[in-house]
Amino acid sequence: MKNPSINIELEFISSDILEEFKGEEKMQYILDKIKDNKILVMEESLSSTDEAKLIEATMRNISEKFSGIEVSTLREKQENGIRETIIKLLGGKTGGLTVIGPSKLIKQIKKEPKRISVLAEKKQSDSEKNSEE
């Protein structure tokens, strides 16, 4: 039985890169990287609306090879708080962090209010097992 080495690639993405994209482009940029088996750590928290858009975009991308994502967001403060709204109006960044990866790679993502822990494991799908036999 083969015991292949496991490579897990992490990519840290600055919020400056994400600002270049608008609407659906941003979601597709994220999903293209995840479909390439990367775990992304993004220097921004997605808003609730963006999270919903990301889930919608994920559903449209699901196939036999891509079964979806695991995602977790840390927000520094309340998303729609006065401080955050003023910072956004002035063009500033409110901080936060988002971790996203393919569900086939992320075994568990544990979220707490101020901490995210990720356990990644290369799982072999039934179809991969069958192709080895």
């Binding site: 079964s67 979806g68 569900s103 086939k104």
Partner: peptide
């Protein structure tokens, strides 16, 4: 149900 993943397997 809302989910971020759906695996046919």
């Amino acid at each position: 149900g809302i989910s971020t993943k759906i695996d046919f397997e």
